[in-house]
Structure formats: structure tokens, C-alpha cells
Design a protein around this nucleic acid. Structure first.
Lengths: 161, 161
DNA sequence: GAAGAATTACTCGGATACTGCGTGTCCGAGTGTAACGGG
DNA sequence: CCCGTTACACTCGGACACGCAGTATCCGAGTAATTCTTC
């Protein structure tokens, strides 16, 4: 079990757009070249971010993608949900109701949710909360602290002109 | 991104062995029939639990699997790690170092860990901690509280004689 | 009747196919831009 | 010189292949129980 690489691609792309600063749209090819990614596949991920409301797409010549709102208003959870969907990590198929054991139990016992599902749900809730507590601005700030020049390098690589 | 169904199967199987109580080994076919699962595939998952030290296997006639230690000494995390492996949820491929952006940055900036990786790691740590804090005995207790008769039904379905 | 050896039946364990999702790629619809011609 | 029109180039967006991990299955190695023979 692991997240798709689309999450990593989306995170870095969003940060790059923020470092770029100006609200000008950037084409997928530019963003992909920035980290040596497949432009077509990155485009698919960015479309997911548009559907999730994190990006705006600008069609036509000199079009591309631009941030829909400041990084401070985006949580890491927003990115994960936009890319991976909101399906739960643990899928309960209610096997407790099946087989020689499940069929022997009275229906009354199944009124309460599955204890296994509840236990897994607690952990998943903790995961989601930790993701929701971190905004992309926090991540950007951490990166800037580690390497203060990264913003300038992004503008050099992706800047218009 | 979601966990395989092996986790759900393993959790319920471990609980059933605990409800059964006696240290007698139970064959895979019995355990599988308990929740209408594929015996062959369940066997593969149980082998993982043996490798993880949660179960003991008894070969030969009237053999099967038995708990390696009490449920109170097993965390939910132990089960997840035994089945899914200890690979991280988020895999950082260090794309920050590649492409027109990465190649432009000085190596000094890469001495610190990737900020995206750190953010994801925090959430994953919260997830693992929440899983580690819950023992299988806790899960069993919750199930018993919801349906106090489930233990008796398991013994009826899987009991020896 | 008891002990021991051969047989049998049953179980785990790993090696072998199949399926679905993540991954990767391609081409068409749509739009802004730029060139071009006319007033 | 300015404006409307036309053609163009560029971009997004979704539809189309590929590969790998999760899923599912089967058969062989190994062991305990059983049975039979012998003392």
C-alpha cells in the first residue's frame, strides 16, 4: 500500500507555481521540464488538481495552469484528496457477516459498526488530521529555510523571459 | 491508495483465534470458512503473520495456526506491518534534484531532507502511532461490548467437537 | 496386550496464473495570438 | 494608419495502451496420527 507518485508531482508543482509568484499561467511542458517528468502524465494529475479546486486552467496559446488560491489556504490533505480521491485507506467489506461465524451471529450484533473498521478509522483520522494541519505555505516555508535560493532558481528556470 | 484486503482478513482471523481460547491449532480451511474466504489466499496472509511473529504454524495432521502471544501484546500496527510490509505510504523519489529546476540548485540545498517528504512523514508517523496505540485486545473488547455473544458463536463454529 | 514400523491422511509452504489499478502515451477540441488584407 | 477577418500555433482535456502489484489458485514437501504386524 502506497500513494501514487502523482502526489509527489503535484506537491512540487504547486510549490513551484507559488515560487514563480506572478499570476501568469504556466504550461504543463514547462512544469514537467522543471523536474524531468512526463508532461502528458503530469497533465493528468494537474487536471485532478483543477477538479479539486486547487488550480485554474487557462486554455489557448500562452495558456497553462495557475494557482486557484494562495498556498496558505491549501492543506496537504487537499492535495492528497484531489489526486488520490477520498476513498478510505482501509476498506471494510463486512466479512464479519459472512461464513459459518457471521451467519451464526444474530443481526442485532451487526447494528454497531465493525470494531476492526473503527480501529482502522481512528488511525486514518489521525493521518488526515496531520495532513490537514499542514498548509502548503508551511511546506514552502520549510523548503525556503533549508535552501533560501530555491525560489530564485525556480524563477530563473520557469520565469517568463 | 488503499490497504489490501489481507489486513481485514488477518485482523478478523486473529480475533477469532483469540475467542476460540484454547491453544489448539486451527486449520486454514476452518478459519476461511468462518468468514467465507478463499482458503488458499488466506493461507498466504497467515504465512505473513507467522513471519511477523504473530502466529505459530503447526504442520501435520490436526495442525494449523495458533496465536504466538496474547492479543494484549499485539498492536494493530504489528498486523499491518506483517501483511503490508514496512514500506512508507509516501515514496519520495527526490524529483527536486532533477530537471531544469533541480539541476540549477546548488547541492548544498539538498543536504536537508525534502520538505514534502517531511510533511508526508509527519502524517504517516501519526497514522502509525494511532495504530500502535491500539492493541488487538482493545479491538476485541470493543467487539465484545457491541455483541457479547460473538465469542460463543465463534466457539460453536470453530470449536473442536 | 504392547511396542514398533510402515502407511495414510492431513496440513503448511511456496511456486504458478489471472485481474485490476496505477502508469504512461497519444490525438482531438478549443482558444488566444498573430498575420494579413481591406477600408 | 486602423480595424475586421482569417489562418495558425499552442494549450488543455479526455480517450487509448502498457506494466506491475495485488489477487487468486494449485500442487508438492513434511509431519502427526493411525493401522497393521510382530513379539
Amino acid at each position: 500500500m502506497r500513494t501514487g507518485k502523482g502526489v509527489e508531482w503535484a506537491m512540487h508543482t504547486l510549490l513551484n507555481l507559488a515560487w514563480l509568484g506572478d499570476g501568469e499561467p504556466v504550461a504543463t511542458a514547462q512544469l514537467a521540464a522543471g523536474h524531468d517528468l512526463s508532461a502528458s502524465y503530469l497533465n493528468k494529475q494537474l487536471q485532478q488538481l483543477v477538479k479539486g479546486g486547487l488550480l485554474e486552467s487557462v486554455p489557448g496559446a500562452r495558456g497553462g495552469f495557475r494557482l486557484a488560491r494562495p498556498l496558505a489556504a491549501m492543506s496537504v490533505l487537499d492535495v492528497v484528496l484531489a489526486i488520490e480521491g477520498d476513498a478510505p485507506l482501509f476498506r471494510c467489506t463486512e466479512i464479519r457477516r459472512c461464513g459459518t461465524i457471521g451467519e451464526r451471529c444474530p443481526d442485532a450484533g451487526f447494528a454497531q459498526p465493525c470494531a476492526v473498521k473503527v480501529a482502522m478509522g481512528r488511525a486514518e483520522a489521525a493521518w488526515r488530521q496531520a495532513l490537514a494541519e499542514q498548509s502548503l505555505a508551511d511546506v514552502q516555508a520549510a523548503a525556503d529555510e533549508h535552501a533560501p535560493t530555491v525560489g530564485a532558481h525556480v524563477r530563473q528556470a520557469l520565469g517568463h523571459g
